[in-house]
Computed example of a mutant assay.
Amino acid sequence: MIRKCKEHGYFRGEVCPECSDEGRYVLDDDREERLGRFVSGALRHFPEDVGLEMDAQGWVDLDFLYDAMKKRYRWGTMERLLSLVKSDKKERYEIDDSFIRARYGHSVEVDLISDYPENELSFLYYGVSQEEADMILDNGITPVRQCYVHLSTSLEKAKQAALVHTDNPVIFEVDAQAAQQEGVDIVTVNRDIALARGIPPIHIRITDA
Rank of each mutant, 00 (worst) to 15 (best):
I2K: 00
R3V: 00
C5E: 02
K6Y: 09
E7Y: 09
G9Y: 00
Y10A: 00
F11I: 01
P17R: 12
C19K: 02
C19G: 01
S20I: 01
S20K: 03
E22T: 13
G23P: 08
R24K: 12
D29F: 01
D30V: 06
D30M: 03
R31P: 00
E32L: 03
R34I: 02
D49M: 09
L52H: 12
M54Y: 03
A56L: 08
V60M: 09
D61S: 11
L62Y: 04
D63E: 15
F64V: 04
L65R: 03
Y66G: 07
D67G: 05
R72N: 10
Y73M: 00
Y73Q: 01
W75C: 14
W75R: 14
W75D: 15
T77F: 00
E79G: 05
R80I: 00
R80L: 03
L81E: 00
V85H: 00
S87V: 05
D88R: 05
E91T: 06
R92A: 07
E94T: 11
I95Q: 05
D96L: 14
F99G: 13
R101I: 15
G105K: 06
H106L: 13
E109G: 05
E109P: 03
V110Q: 12
V110N: 11
D115F: 15
D115H: 14
D115Q: 07
Y116C: 13
E118Y: 09
F123W: 08
L124Q: 01
L124H: 06
Y126G: 10
Y126F: 15
G127F: 07
E131F: 11
E131C: 07
D134H: 10
M135S: 15
I136R: 12
D138W: 06
D138Q: 11
N139D: 10
N139Y: 09
C147F: 03
T153R: 14
T153V: 09
S154N: 04
S154Q: 01
L155S: 02
L155E: 00
E156H: 03
K157Q: 12
A158Y: 01
H165D: 12
H165Y: 15
H165P: 04
T166A: 13
D167G: 10
E173R: 15
V174D: 06
D175N: 15
A176I: 07
Q180A: 05
Q180E: 09
E182V: 04
G183K: 06
D185M: 04
T188L: 06
T188C: 07
D192C: 04
I193K: 03
A196G: 03
G198F: 07
P200W: 04
P201W: 09
P201L: 09
P201N: 13
H203Q: 02
R205W: 10
R205M: 10
